[in-house]
């Protein structure tokens, strides 16, 4: 028990690695495999052709069978390596398959057909990435529209969120006015009202305002985030009032003080909120599913969901679409990892 405790408390292995260090690394490496492995597996799979996807057991990397052009045969023929019998070790091309026997030829001497049992040979594979999966998304599906819907909603909602939340945070942190504290408490209270609870009435309100099947139906209900107001207010409280008074002496209007002084100085907090907002809007699912009924107005997650629900799921396209959906988030995370983790640790919100 004491040893286990050492594993959990020691903060420094003095010099040499002891077993607790080994155990820690083992845990972390296994954990990392479990966390990232499925994502990597998905990305690799998305490059497989439909025939590669139904391979069982699946191969790690995307592959396809090698085909060669053989004289006198109009189309390229698939290559096999013969494992048993007279021709063991040779690489032959298949002409046709009848029952358990295949007619094959040596590509170097295509005149003589050779008959080989089909369990006495293995396919010759080579690495091949089926980029068509991605290319076809744009042609065969309305993917461009879904992507645009998602990008539009994410960008516009984030800009409006930053503007409205920072205005409110500015007043709540820098002005004394009657009703300020009740307003702040009211906004904080909405942190505790999960959107799932007001699903039904929000749908009514969206319908009355003509926002259903409309990207603004996703944008407007989402932009007044209490988290954002809270985050920005806490940051703006740390800006010295002297700066505002100096600007007042400098004949700046209150609006100018807000956008020339306070906003530029709140950049770090605005950045955190911008990242949060992008993540929220890009990943949002339940509310868009309720408010966006027609498929033309679908966002990427909705398109993914409806696509995977179809009877004959075309996994190659679905996987490619999933990868496209997770790439922006992954890139943002890779670039801003430190900001995001610190922002979340300090704000305690997601």
């Amino acid at each position: 028990m004491d040893r286990l405790a050492r594993l959990l408390t020691a903060t420094r292995g003095r010099g040499r690695m002891d077993w607790t260090d080994w155990a820690s690394y083992l845990y972390l490496v296994l954990g990392t495999l479990l966390m990232l492995g499925p994502v990597v597996w998905l990305a690799l799979s998305s490059l497989k052709s439909p025939s590669g996807l139904i391979e069982f057991p699946p191969t790690l990397l995307p592959q396809e069978q090698v085909r060669v052009a053989v004289p006198t045969y109009p189309a390229p023929l698939p290559l096999y390596r013969i494992t048993e019998g007279d021709h063991a070790g040779q690489t032959l091309a298949e002409v046709r398959k009848i029952g358990l026997q295949a007619t094959m030829v040596d590509p170097a001497a295509p005149e003589t057909p050779i008959r080989v049992p089909i369990d006495a040979r293995t396919k010759v594979m080579r690495l091949h990435a089926a980029w068509d999966n991605y290319g076809d998304l744009l042609q065969k599906f309305d993917f461009g529209r879904y992507l645009w819907n998602s990008v539009f909603i994410t960008t516009v909602a984030t800009l409006i969120t930053l503007l409205l939340n920072s205005m409110a945070a500015f007043a709540l942190s820098k002005y004394r006015f009657a009703g300020r504290d009740p307003v702040f408490l009211l906004m904080l209270a909405t942190l505790m009202i999960p959107p799932t609870i007001i699903l039904v009435p929000n749908y009514l309100i969206a319908a009355v305002l003509g926002l259903t099947d409309n990207p603004w139906g996703v944008i407007w209900p989402a932009v007044a985030t209490p988290t954002g107001v809270f985050l920005l207010r806490q940051y703006m409280l740390t800006l010295p009032d002297d700066l505002l008074e100096a600007a007042r002496m400098d004949n700046a209007s209150e609006w100018r003080i807000y956008w020339r002084i306070v906003l530029p100085l709140s950049k770090p907090a605005l950045a955190v909120l911008a990242i949060f907002s992008v993540m929220w809007r890009w990943n949002e699912f339940l509310w868009p599913m309720v408010v966006l009924g027609r498929s033309e107005s679908f966002t990427l997650p909705l398109a993914l969901n409806s696509f995977q629900g179809e009877l004959t799921t075309q996994w190659n396209y679905l996987l490619a679409m999933t990868v496209v959906t997770l790439v922006p988030v992954t890139v943002i995370f890779a670039l801003l990892q430190r900001h995001i983790t610190q922002g979340i640790a300090s704000a305690g919100v997601k």
């Binding site: 010295p240 002297d242 700066l243 008074e245 100096a246 600007a247 007042r248 002496m249 400098d250 004949n251 700046a252 002084i261 530029p264 100085l265």
Partner: peptide, 19 residues
């Protein structure tokens, strides 16, 4: 209002706009 009094104030903290 402060801006219309034609005065200028030098703050203890200087209050220079850092950006």
């Amino acid at each position: 209002p402060a801006a219309r009094r034609g005065l200028a104030l030098v703050f203890q903290s200087y209050a220079l706009y850092p950006h």
